[in-house]
């Protein structure tokens, strides 16, 4: 299935900013992190359609996944 992955902050280093990628059906957020060589504890926030999702969230074809490392400000 096709997933658009958007990476932010340090996750972009040596990877990409945004990319359309193919993943097996029923891939989870965690599977995509593994494919991107991002360790689970590095993940700050994962968002789909503006909603927070957990690593065990099962992706659906055509979705956009936004991944952030642990960041803050304010």
């Amino acid at each position: 299935m096709k997933i658009t992955v958007k990476l932010f902050a340090g996750f972009r280093d040596n990877r990409f900013k945004v990319a359309d990628q193919d993943y097996p059906e029923a891939s989870t957020v965690g599977d995509i992190l593994t494919a991107l060589d991002i360790n689970g504890p590095e993940l700050g926030v994962a968002l789909i359609n503006g909603r927070h999702v957990l690593p065990d969230h099962v992706m659906m074809d055509g979705q956009t996944l936004s991944l952030f490392p642990k960041v803050g400000g304010g």
Partner: peptide, 19 residues
């Protein structure tokens, strides 16, 4: 802590725009 040790020093508070 990743926020104070890494995120804030590199990107500053403006890292929040995208999130």
């Amino acid at each position: 802590h990743p926020v104070t040790g890494e995120g804030l020093p590199i990107y500053g508070t403006n890292v929040l725009i995208n999130i």
